[in-house]
């Protein structure tokens, strides 16, 4: 551990680790996390539709996975729809055609997302910065065209009527509330996993790479290995999120692998706050809510989303949670 702390000397603001905090949660973060858990427990009984909450949580997990890369390693992947959408297709196909139980379908979606991420990450980390973004975007477009043509994805129709199945073969998930608890559990596990990764010695090296890659290299870290592993973890979690979403809605379509979905997850994370713990979830909540309310406005949604992009980049780079954190002088 001692050698790891030396390595983190690169990071501008060292994380407080010695206050006995659980899993690296600082005090304000612990409070926020408890608030989140209470919200998740109460929300479906407080007049919020479980399906809406589930959609929000799926995108929240997707954004958390994306944030792991952009917020902590500084890698902008512009092709995360590939892992999200492919996770959805795999879960849909295995659950519908092969009759796999839901828990296994979700895990398979994550595994395939991670495997795809391993291959694409291995190709993409050869270039940095803007090139990395362009390469990941091009690779996800490759996945999109494969999904248009491949027989198992159903092409333009997608996979429809995916059964939610029975959890562990016992609990029927067709009632929305039962499914909600599964989705909430998946989200909390994913959320804690991201947090654990970020606050592990591995996560410290990730941040070191973000701050100053040549220096991390000179300290003896194989930065490419760290970047690749972070990419695989992020892609795997994105796959889990996509798999869960396809089980919730019973469909897996080309929308989820399209580049505009990659743009949406970037927007969610940016709105919530890059590199914040709770930002991706807040950003996902804002964007999903907005899409719900503006659904009948058609293409104006695209215009508004673009406008939010512009506003965030020009004036609001810390995002909602980042701004609140700066106001309260805490890291959230």
């Amino acid at each position: 551990m001692a050698s790891e702390t030396t390595a983190t000397g690169i990071v501008a603001i060292p994380e407080p680790t010695s206050d006995g905090s659980l899993w690296g949660f600082s005090r304000p973060q612990r409070i926020a996390f408890i608030v989140l858990l209470v919200f998740l427990g109460v929300a479906p009984f407080a007049g919020l539709y479980p399906v809406f909450l589930m959609k929000l949580l799926c995108f929240g997990l997707f954004a958390c996975a994306f944030n792991l890369l952009i917020g902590y390693v500084g890698l902008l992947s512009f092709g995360h729809a590939a892992y999200f959408g492919m996770g959805g297709y795999i879960a849909g196909h295995t659950a519908k055609v092969m009759g796999v139980p839901p828990e296994l379908a979700i895990i398979l979606g994550g595994v395939v997302g991670a495997a795809l991420g391993a291959v694409f990450g291995w190709v993409a980390i050869r270039r940095q910065g803007i090139y990395f973004a362009m390469i990941t975007l091009a690779l996800s477009q490759l996945v999109y065209f494969v999904c248009v043509q491949a027989p198992f994805t159903g092409g333009e129709d997608g996979i429809q009527a995916i059964p939610r199945g029975k959890l562990f073969g016992i609990i029927d998930l067709s009632p929305d509330l039962s499914m909600y608890w599964v989705v909430a559990t998946v989200f909390v596990i994913g959320f804690l996993l991201v947090h654990r990764i970020v606050h592990s010695p591995f996560g410290m090296v990730m941040k070191a790479i973000k701050e100053n890659e040549p220096r991390a290299t000179s300290l003896g870290y194989r930065t490419d290995d760290y970047k690749l592993l972070a990419f695989i973890l992020s892609a795997g979690l994105a796959g889990v999120a996509g798999a869960t979403k396809s089980l919730v809605f019973g469909i897996a379509t080309l929308t989820d692998v399209h580049w505009s979905m990659s743009g949406e997850v970037v927007l969610m994370t940016l709105v919530g706050g890059l590199g914040t713990v709770f930002g991706p979830l807040v950003g996902a909540a804002v964007i999903v809510t907005m899409q719900n309310y503006l659904a009948e406005w058609g293409a104006w949604v695209t215009v508004i989303q673009g406008g939010i992009f512009v506003a965030c980049v020009l004036a609001f780079r810390r995002g909602i949670v980042g701004e609140i954190g700066a106001l309260l002088r805490v890291k959230l």
Binding site: L76, F78, I130, A133, G263, V266, L270, A299, W300, V301, T302, V303, Q305, G306, G307, I308, F309, V310, C312, V313, L314
Partner: peptide, 14 residues
């Protein structure tokens, strides 16, 4: 990149 992506979305939507 993010800014020009956003501007592109606005133009295309309009």
């Amino acid at each position: 990149l993010l800014l020009t992506f956003g501007i592109g979305l606005v133009i295309e939507g309009v």
